[in-house]
Amino acid sequence: MAPAVRLRSAVALLGGFPVLAGADLEVQMGEVVLLQGANGAGKTSLLRTCAGLLAVVSGSAVVLGCDLTLDRRAVRRRVGLLGHATALYDDLTVEDNVRFAVRAAGAPSAAVEPALIRLGLGGRLRSVGASRLSAGQRRRTALAVLVARQPELWLLDEPHAGLDAEHRDLLDDLIRDAVAGGAAVLMASHELDRASALAHRTVTMAGGQVLPARPAPRSGLPTPATDPPGAAAHQPAGISPPHDGFEVLEVAHVA
């Protein structure tokens, strides 16, 4: 199976500054990869590059089989990005926002209602304007868009930020469900304890580059056999790595 993400010496510029300075990364379908690194390391830029929002000016970048150096738009409908901002229209209600995003992405409208209910937005909140939502409620609305769109690649930038404990757990469940459904997840987070529990492996960024893998697994669990070169070997509970095209969800390990 072709990888979900394959970056080779990818360079991306923002205002003339190389926010990605020769990044190498490979993410398989059915894999959860955690990006860690200091502020300004390039995590957000890498996610935006994979979403086709930042142009790759040098090197190669193939996401879901689409060559981003040739066409950045083709991949966007198949990718879901949850960034620092929630991309909601303040003057539309929660339901209107989700419905518009789903229709715009060409996803079935029937997916809206289950997504709203799953994110706890099915009641009174559905008709509340986005400008009146708390930060956590906005985050949940943005997540409802992702759930309804069912992208093949989830790009999550500090996804737990702003969520209460209950909805952090829900987010973890959503990620596990997405992976069980065959999607790949690339996630940047500073909340390493929670995020690393979800991830098959962790990669570290600095200076716009993905640093070489750490030599030993942190948790002592077996390193995924299909880990691409350069993968750090962190294998905690929850989700097994992809093997020969199959993804196994170890339900027994899920809290």
Binding site: A51, G52, L53, R73, R76, R77, V79, G80, L81, G83, H84, A85, T86, A87, L88, Y89, D90, D91, A101, A104, A105, G106, R138, V145
Partner: peptide
């Protein structure tokens, strides 16, 4: 202005319209 607020324009671009 409505597209600039809260990066709604990014959502528009990501929609693939």
């Amino acid at each position: 202005a409505v597209e600039a607020a809260d990066a709604a324009g990014d959502g528009l671009r990501m929609s693939g319209l």
